[in-house]
Design a binder for these strands. Structure first.
Length: 683
DNA sequence: GCAAGGTC
């Protein structure tokens, strides 16, 4: 019997069907599906794993944070521990009769490691069976048949590069997390996490917040006019010098303006607006963000749609349709749904269909596209929203660019030049079907040089320069991808973790004082872990392992030495680090101003001495005895906002896996019922 | 109880 091991169940099923056609039987071994079939009298079995089946961790002796100095974790032994017990049992059971093992996990570094781990487990039961490797970049008949007709061997160096990554992430993460948590007494569920990906990501958010805080707004003035042609068409223009930095200058112009203007010149140009590129995971998350979904929500819904067969695999880097995908056929299929018939026709009416393509081309999976027609009634409203987005995006990638006419007219008013901008779509093409695209027509009438225009109104506008905006989850995922932080499958979980740790909240993301202090201290004393460079260096070293230039041990040991040096600095600066972070944590506990009569105090989150329950009290205690109760479960985040119903402070309560709950602390708040209702609807 | 990476 030949045993084929794939990375996931769906891949196992498809590989079996491609190799055997219809003659595939399925049995369950310890509840795990195993597909079997015969080719030329030879028995085959295919089992799908669930990603990694082993994890790395320290031995039990290191589990107690108080009994182990974090420094010891740097050189401690690391073990591999089973995390998919059922799958391992099933693998053990079926591997004893195998006379050949074929590793058919995804063809990338983690896939090689997953396959290597599985191979080692099989070899414990069956040392004699040779192990081979099927390398394919798409689970299509062509890809699979080619791979199985030309089997290779497991690339040990590639797997070891993955193992180096696992070890280094654990060593740095565990050592620094424990050090920071212990030195600030933030333990149990309040621990302060640190990691190769999460800390640089948090640094991005914190840096942006500091930029916003230190931004100095400068005032400027804009002069604009309302205009009308003889035939009564109205439009607007602003002074050519868009921003006046001195009010007197703007006023000087404003006063000069009379009630007539002359068209000095008109500049017309036609521009293409290209259709969007095919969706990869990052682009989907960004678009999801623009329809109000968090990164995790988009991924969870996409995962569901995929499991139910409506869309293709949602974890991909690829933005170029491979030739194995028949885009025309998919467009035709979508046409059978009333919702999309017009869009489908628009695609099929073209003489030649040219698909747009993005910059990233990889062969892991195709871009995310619809694979079946869904009925609106068969999906939840959120599922439908995302499905509709994916369908429309797909259709648009197959349509020609929109054409837009841009008109810029210069108009003289008493010697002052004004500019009127307008744009009209000449051909909408894909834009008709893509409501997520924001650009709209801006009307401007047909003008002639020398034409006289009536000035019907004039305005002198006070404006201010604005600070940069906070990151939305979508923007952050995009930035992470650009910097090489995390992967398509992990970026949203990294953000989710930062929220769960109490480091950031809200969308757009705002860091807590604790996060600002943690980043400040790590930047100052452990710069390595706060920068994306650590990831790019790691990638470089892993490439070295793959090439055979160095061993996994060399790389991990060098990393251990670096961490030792970092820890020496941190130990020396422990007092400063501890004080700065603890001060910030105290600031995070401030809920808002105390509403007590004649009280100037601040409301603070406190813990009752006897019951250990949390509540809100005034810092002017015992003079002021104002208190408020709080829910005991969930992560509490102070956001220093006031309730729009009663003006009392609002706190955010975050339960794992639920939508954050904005809670007004006032038990008699007139908006209470409404809010509670909303909370129930949204959870 | 720590990380990041797979997948559900």
């Amino acid at each position: 019997m030949k045993l084929i091991i794939s990375e996931k169940e769906i891949a196992a099923r498809r590989i079996a069907h491609i190799l055997a056609g219809n003659g595939v039987d399925q049995e369950k071994v310890y509840g795990v599906p195993v597909h079997h079939f015969k080719i030329d009298g030879e028995d085959y079995r295919v089992i799908g794993l669930k990603g990694h089946i082993l994890k790395v961790d320290y031995p039990k002796e290191y589990a107690n944070w108080f009994k182990v100095d974090p420094i010891e974790l740097i050189d401690a032994k690391i073990e591999k521990i089973p995390i998919q017990k059922k799958i391992i049992q099933a693998l053990n059971k079926i591997s004893s009769d195998a006379d050949e093992i074929i590793i058919a996990t995804d063809y990338d570094r983690e896939g090689e490691l997953i396959g290597y781990d599985a191979m080692q487990l099989v070899k414990e039961k069956n040392a004699l069976a040779p192990a081979k490797r099927a390398k394919f970049s798409a689970i299509t008949p062509k890809g699979i048949n080619q791979a199985f007709s030309k089997l290779g061997r497991i690339d040990l160096d590639l797997a070891f590069a993955g193992r180096a990554r696992q070890d280094i992430d654990l060593i740095w993460g565990a050592t620094l997390t424990r050090f920071l948590s212990l030195s600030t007494y933030q333990i149990k569920d309040k621990f302060l996490s640190v990691g190769r990906v999460q800390t640089p990501t948090l640094t991005l958010i914190v840096d942006r917040e500091l930029e916003i805080k230190s931004f100095i707004t400068t005032p400027y003035w804009v002069v604009s006019v309302k205009l009308k042609t003889e035939s009564g068409e109205e439009f607007e223009a602003t002074h050519k010098k868009k921003r006046f930095l001195k009010k007197e200058d703007a006023q000087g112009v404003f006063i000069k303006l009379g009630d007539r203007g002359t068209v000095l010149g008109i500049n017309e140009s036609v521009r293409d607006i290209k259709p969007p590129t095919p969706f990869n995971t990052t682009a989907l998350i960004i678009s999801g963000s623009s329809i109000g979904f968090t990164a995790s929500k988009t991924i969870n819904i996409a995962e569901n749609l995929y499991m139910n067969g409506y869309i293709s695999y949602p974890r991909t880097d690829n933005t170029v349709y491979p030739s194995s995908i028949d885009v025309k056929e998919i467009a035709r299929m979508l046409g059978s749904s009333g919702e999309y018939s017009r869009m489908s026709e628009a695609v099929l009416a073209q003489k030649k269909i040219v698909a747009s393509r993005g910059k990233r081309r990889s062969t892991d999976h195709p871009p995310i596209h619809p694979t079946a027609v869904a009925q609106k009634a068969g999906l939840s409203s959120d599922e439908w929203k995302l499905y509709d987005l994916i369908v429309r995006r797909f259709i648009c990638t197959l349509l020609p660019a929109a054409k837009i006419k841009i008109i810029i007219a210069t108009i003289d008013i008493n010697g002052e030049p004004f500019i009127a901008n307008g744009s009209n779509f000449i051909e909408q093409n894909w834009i008709k079907f893509y409501p997520y695209y924001k650009r709209r027509d801006v009307f401007i009438p047909q003008l002639k040089e020398g034409q006289i225009i009536t000035v019907t109104g004039k305005e002198l506008l006070d404006k201010k320069t604005k600070p940069p905006v906070r990151y939305t989850q979508g923007m952050l995922v995009e930035k992470m991808e650009e910097l090489g932080l995390g992967t398509k499958a992990t970026r949203h979980t990294i953000i989710q973790n930062l929220i769960l740790r109490g480091y950031v909240s809200g969308n757009p993301l705002q860091p807590s004082e604790k996060a600002i202090a943690v980043v400040k201290m790590l930047k100052k004393h452990a710069e390595k872990i706060s920068s994306p460079d650590m990831t790019s260096e790691l990638e470089m070293y892993m490439d070295g392992i793959v090439r055979g230039d160095e061993t996994k041990e060399d790389v991990v040991d060098r990393s251990r030495k670096m961490l030792s040096e970092v820890m020496t600095v941190l130990q020396n600066e422990k007092d400063e680090i501890s004080q700065e972070i603890k001060k910030a944590i105290r600031e995070d506990l401030v809920v808002g101003k105390c509403p007590g009569e004649n009280c100037n105090g601040d409301l603070i989150v406190r813990t009752a001495r006897k019951t250990k329950k949390r509540f809100i009290g005034c810092n002017a205690y015992p003079e002021c005895r104002t208190t408020f109760s709080l829910p005991q479960r969930g992560l509490l985040v102070t956001i220093r906002e006031e309730c729009k119903h009663c003006g009392y402070p609002i706190v955010k309560i975050i339960y794992k896996g639920r939508k954050p709950w904005d809670l007004c602390i006032n038990p008699d708040c007139p908006g209470k019922d409404e809010k509670y209702k909303n909370y129930n609807n949204n959870k």
